[in-house]
Design a protein around this nucleic acid. Structure first.
Lengths: 244, 244
DNA sequence: CGCCGACTTGAATTCCTTCAAGTACGGTGG
DNA sequence: CCACCGTACTTGAAGGAATTCAAGTCGGCG
């Protein structure tokens, strides 16, 4: 549980300050948080539903997602998380994880003791604000996903997901221009959007044919951002960034 | 903005203590919160997306929902709320409402100034805990809806929604045994589940034919709770009640 | 080189939607 | 009191979007 590398948690600062300003003292306290670093291979579960957690975790590299599963075994990806995201801040305030956390690529996570987080939240108004807003922005994204899955057709839905993931990567500073890593297989993309992998494939083809994107192995290249946004019915307000 | 009727906010206490205990002082402070009572007719919007809110609101009677709408005008019901529910506690901590609040029946709401809520949250650890958990339970329900809409077929999805609404009404004490008010029209039920009203109708018929429920005008009668739970793939953990 | 996982594409099927027509019911006004 | 009306519910038939099944390609890695 080392607290020595004072730059390691910088991505978290980047993330939090997208929603709420932090003063230098707050930043120092955050950077000094004790943490345990662990690597996870694609497909592994850093946390499982029902686990009683003593830590909460934060993405340093790679991509992880939250999932829940139906009784018949279908998996829904509930959210995806990237560098700087607090994946389960919630668990600092509830005892039991109500979803799985699963690595969708190889990923490095920082585990921070719950009580350290809640102490900090109690101590500093600025951090409290930032953490609140982080959780609320997260909930807002959940709602948008529900709207997406419930009301938009497959083509729009797929485009919407691409817009969101691209924009969030851009905000996290892990995207060069309009070319992004695409973290998900088509299978996973399907689980996130409530579609089958086969249909995802067809929709990506349509988006390619329409000149909006090109896709190579694990990269997505947005050829026409405005066109894609239009096709996706995407408006970024729900992400609650106050600067970009 | 009267603070005189000290029983008016009791449903809120009932709700909060489902997730987190409160000591008597906390309860008194909550009951003493200043509030403005307003009635809303079916279909009206207590709050609209984009509104800058100075209050947050709480259901005293009737049912309201949160909604978001796509660019093409389809409405998704994001959650439904009943007696004792804080509909937009979130707005105490974000400036701008990121969803509409719409009355689905005639409803009475209590509006409480945001700063009164955040003061109370700052002042009392117990209330802070309770409010956190309230918001997190709310987010957990969102996730379950996403799973429901994304992965379950129509029959299961409809059954699941019935289980949740019935159980929550029961927890809120507005349900006699297995007979509940059913707050939604089939149109609204469709908007909540990502289905059409026509298909909701067919699924309700199937559930009737299978002997799980009977439906009269605005009432749903659960004939076989265990059977319905089974058909719905319903497990109540996600509601985060620690007593029932 | 060969294998495996991910991607691609076609054809058949299914679930859900759309369209259409009709019923039931509560409220309003003559 | 009943005729009228609007809204919600009901049911059938046709159509369409997405799934399922199946077969084949591509590319990375042992």
């Amino acid at each position: 549980m080392s607290a020595h590398d004072l730059t390691l948690l910088l991505p978290l600062i980047t993330n939090l300050t997208q929603h709420s300003p932090l003063d230098p003292d707050d930043k120092d306290m955050i950077l000094a948080l004790p943490r345990l670093i662990k690597r996870f291979e694609t497909g592994t579960f850093p946390v499982r539903q029902g686990d009683i957690t003593k830590t909460c975790c934060l993405v340093l590299s790679g991509f992880v997602c939250r999932t829940r599963t139906t009784g018949t075994g279908s998996r829904q990806i509930l959210s995806i998380h990237m560098k700087g995201d607090f994946v389960d801040l919630q668990n600092s305030f509830l005892n039991e994880a109500d979803y799985n956390i699963q690595a969708i690529t190889n990923a490095t996570l920082a585990f921070i003791p719950k009580h350290e987080v809640s102490d900090l939240v109690d101590k500093s108004t600025g951090i409290r604000q930032a953490v609140w807003r982080n959780i609320l922005a997260d909930a807002s994204i959940s709602r948008e996903w529900l709207l997406n899955v419930g009301q938009r057709d497959a083509y729009t839905r797929v485009a919407h997901m691409i817009c969101e993931v691209a924009l969030r990567q851009s905000a996290a500073g892990i995207c060069n221009g309009m070319i992004c890593d695409w973290p998900m297989t088509q299978e996973q993309f399907g689980d996130a959007t409530g579609l089958t992998a086969v249909h995802i494939n067809r929709m990506l083809k349509s988006l390619r044919d329409d000149g909006l994107i090109t896709v190579t192995k694990r990269t997505i290249n947005i050829m026409d951002w405005d066109g894609l946004k239009e096709a996706a019915d995407f408006t970024e307000g729900y992400l609650h960034y106050f600067k970009l």
